[in-house]
Design a protein around this nucleic acid. Structure first.
Length: 631
DNA sequence: TTAGGGTTAG
């Protein structure tokens, strides 16, 4: 057997890893040149590889170094393939693969390392055909049984969405080790076969913390967050090491489930056990707090972070916008630019939301145009939808329609829905009918489109059209999504679906609702009963307004959450105007902060005001829509 | 010197 003589890393080269800037690396480079160390091809290779792998921004420098070397070693070229596979230009890896294949040095031919890195490039590029060619080359060069290459191939096919190919590679492995098994488990989860992943997980004779994390990630990524938390609890009970990745995953599940208390527990655990605070973990915390409606805490974590990337900034900007703090979100965007962090398409979704919630149409338009003109980012459907929403909320319905008509791609349901919502807000029947027709053309069973148009007709007391629309819905089998609100009390999630009285404390809730009604009447509140009259579900007509799921959840919050704890409700539809006004008044009468997250954003109510937009609010009669910046 | 798990929107 051929023995490979290992050469230790030169101590000066080892120093490179402690460098934080390229400038420092260049100083070490100068020392190595002076000492003649780089004349040794092994040390030269180590030096180039360390520079290239340290940071992808160093790749140009590593390339220049390589250009001065006519006979790079296989190790050097493999390292360049590896570095480029992780960069923003992964296709450049193939340049070095070609160097290996066409090298003047006859001894150079690709090895198992080459393919381990090259398959990652294919995955990164989503290059299906190239991936198949690389797999062919793997077989041709005799590395199909190498466990590292096999793991890479499983990873590659998973990224390409080819689960059957993952199975083929995995089944070809003689005795797949823990790493390959975990890669396969992850592949099943990523490609939609989470139950098979779980079966594999349960049957594995040995698992380490990465396997556990992969299982949690699998559940979290397919939206089965509750099961993700179950696996996490099992992991804790079995005494498996929890690291920062476990924490990020569990936070992501908490965010989706809107379980702030559990999220807070994770944060406390991170601090108590000094879990390594990576940018990813910090971002997950910011995102969790913001999406659970605790924006103050989110910003506290944000400003406490030592390092922030585009994910962190986008999360915070979006979090502020989602909670109604539009101006603050735009200030933060300016801070981001000042710090030299390059925004991406997702950042602009957050920025446009920020403009939308405070009605800054001109500024929104400026940011939208800057996407392409300044940052070279092509706006996507979501960005167009947000612009329509922005014009619509500001009452500029004609401009919203013109904007839709100027879209370079076919307008989607989101764009037309934004217009339809604005038409409801501003009672514009003609445009509302156009928008509804367009939505139904794209999605014939879109219940929201029917309900909104029906509401517009009802605003005009056009009961004939309301009734005709109801019949169309019945004929087409369009069902209205029932309102559903959830509230977390003592770590337990309580769900209230409109019309459902099965909650064990429903009698008490009803009594509280009656008390609320009395208090509201005494305060001079007159409900806008229009929605009851034109509500299209028969069973919801009677008492519907006072039994909307969000009101029931708030009433339950009042009876079960003692002291000054804010009432946090999450609902599946947009909050109705009456519930919005009632929540505002309850916050004053019962001296309780209320935070409602609807399908669109958060609504904060305190002391009888909508937090952060009191001034705008005071200029309107309290039940009369539209309120710029509130809906 | 190589392989498996993580964050922003929708």
């Amino acid at each position: 057997m051929k023995s490979v003589k290992r050469i230790a890393k030169h101590p000066t080269i080892s120093l490179l890893n402690s460098c934080t800037t390229l400038k420092e690396m260049k100083q070490i480079h100068a020392q190595l040149v002076v000492k003649g160390i780089l004349n040794n091809p092994h040390f030269h290779g180590q030096f180039v590889a360390t520079i290239a792998l340290h940071n992808t921004t160093n790749l140009d420098y590593a390339n220049k170094l390589l250009n001065h070397n006519n006979n790079p070693t296989l190790f050097t070229l493999n390292s360049m393939i590896r570095a480029y596979s992780k960069s923003s230009t992964p296709s450049k890896s193939f340049h070095f693969y070609a160097n290996i294949l066409h090298s003047n040095n006859n001894n150079l031919s690709p090895d198992n390392y080459t393919f381990t890195f090259l398959v990652r490039t294919c995955a990164q590029l989503q290059a299906h055909v190239t991936g198949l060619c690389v797999h062919g080359a793997v077989i041709k060069h005799g590395f199909e049984l190498d466990p590292h290459v096999q793991t890479g191939l499983v990873f590659m096919y998973a990224e390409l969405g080819c689960l059957s190919s993952c199975h083929n590679v995995f089944d070809g492995a003689v005795e797949p080790d823990l790493v390959t098994q975990t890669a396969m488990l992850n592949a099943c989860a990523k490609c939609g076969d989470i139950d098979f992943a779980r079966k594999m997980f349960d049957e594995m004779p040995e698992r380490d913390h990465v396997t556990w994390n992969a299982m949690i990630a699998g559940y979290a990524q397919c939206g089965r967050s509750r099961e993700a938390l179950d696996v996490f609890h099992l992991m804790q009970m079995e005494g498996v090491k929890l690291n920062e990745v476990s924490m990020v995953l569990v936070l992501s599940a908490c965010t989706h489930l809107q379980v702030l208390d559990h999220g807070r527990w994770v944060h406390a655990y991170v601090e108590r056990y000094k879990v390594r605070m990576t940018v990813t973990l910090g971002t997950a915390l910011v995102d969790m707090y913001a999406k659970c409606g605790n924006v103050d805490r989110a910003m506290q974590v944000f400003w406490g972070m030592k390092e922030r990337n585009v994910y962190t900034w986008s999360s915070a900007i979006g979090g502020l916008a989602m909670n109604g703090f539009g101006e603050e979100s735009l200030d933060l965007f300016n801070d981001m630019k000042r710090e030299g962090v390059q925004p991406n398409g997702i950042t602009f979704i957050s920025v446009l939301k920020g403009c939308s919630v405070v009605g800054l149409v001109e500024e929104g338009r400026k940011h939208f145009d800057s996407m392409r003109n300044v940052y070279g980012i092509g706006p996507q459907l979501e960005h167009y939808g947000l612009m329509v929403d922005m014009y619509g909320r500001a009452g500029r319905l004609k401009e919203a329609l013109n904007f839709i008509n100027s879209m370079p791609m076919r307008p989607h349901v989101g764009a037309w829905s934004a217009l339809l919502h604005a038409c409801r807000m501003y009672k514009n029947k003609e445009l509302g009918e156009i928008a509804q027709r367009k939505i139904v053309e794209l999605e014939d069973k879109n219940d929201g489109a029917y309900v909104l148009l029906s509401n517009i007709y009802a605003d005009y007391k056009n009961w004939e059209s309301v009734s005709s629309l109801r019949q169309t819905m019945k004929a087409k089998g369009v069902k209205k999504l029932p309102g559903c609100s959830v509230i977390e009390v003592d770590g337990e999630v309580h769900e209230f679906i409109v019309g459902d009285k099965s909650h064990p404390r429903y009698d008490e809730i009803e009594m509280k609702l009656e008390e609320i009604s009395k208090c509201l009447r005494l305060s001079g509140y007159v409900a806008n009963t229009n929605p009851v009259l034109f509500d299209i579900e028969e069973e919801e007509k009677e008492d519907a307004l006072s039994k909307h799921s969000e009101k029931v959840a708030i009433a339950f919050g009042l009876i079960s959450l003692k002291g000054v704890v804010p009432i946090r409700v999450v609902m599946n539809l947009r909050i109705c105007w009456d519930c919005h006004n009632v929540a505002k008044m309850i916050s004053k009468i019962f001296n309780r902060e209320i935070i409602v997250r609807d399908r669109n954003r958060f609504h904060h109510f305190k002391d009888g005001f909508v937090k952060n937009v009191q001034v705008l609010w005071l200029s309107f009669t309290f039940w009369y829509p539209p309120i710029r910046g509130e809906y």
